[in-house]
Design a protein around this nucleic acid. Sequence first.
DNA 1: TTCATGCGCAACCAAACAGTTGCGCATGGC
DNA 2: GCCATGCGCAACTGTTTGGTTGCGCATGAA
Lengths: 105, 105
Amino acid sequence: MTDPSDVFAAIADGTRRQIFETLAISGPATATGLAGDLNITRQAVAKHLAILAAAGMANSERIGRETRFEAEPTSLKAVETWIAQVDRDWQHRLAALASSLDDLA
Amino acid sequence: MTDPSDVFAAIADGTRRQIFETLAISGPATATGLAGDLNITRQAVAKHLAILAAAGMANSERIGRETRFEAEPTSLKAVETWIAQVDRDWQHRLAALASSLDDLA
DNA sequence: TTCATGCGCAACCAAACAGTTGCGCATGGC
DNA sequence: GCCATGCGCAACTGTTTGGTTGCGCATGAA
């Protein structure tokens, strides 16, 4: 299982989000291909892809001498879950506050 | 308007998420108070709160010699929106792929 | 007025990070 | 077999970042 915290760290970087978006929109791609669009080295992209993969946000498959990376959108569930939980906590606190104000009336 | 990218950076740090959760659950608090729970300096907490505030995730209010910080949960909308967009892109690509496969049949 | 509390600002430090260059290895086309 | 392509690994660099300590200022209580 991948640490949810890794997902948060992974999406923190703009370049990484961009790579992830590109994979979602255009489908599987290689580090070399992606490096063409963005204006950075293949190595830099490869590092980002490794981080995305470690966070469970991308899957790699070696085909001949190429390594194709594909996005794994379900990995963002962890972030959605966290946001939903915070929202629940917030609402819960407001409700408790309101009811305690009612008690005073 | 706050840069959405700031929100991504803000939630990337575990301590920051923890502070944000605490504010959502327990309501407004000061840097000194929060520093007690977490095991770091008031200064460190103050920096985190400044980052959260800059990202639009927290609002501060000075009361006497205290500065109370409150969570702003709506600020997470930007993240939710991004995730939803990526999901749409992903589904759209899959649909296009399926239809192009149909054309071959 | 005096004193303790709480805060903000600045300097500093070690670790993490995004990015680069350089090299060697494997795979596919000629 | 030979060469180009694509990749992974390693070392290095500048910048960002989470954290600390120290100081001075303002506010509330005695």
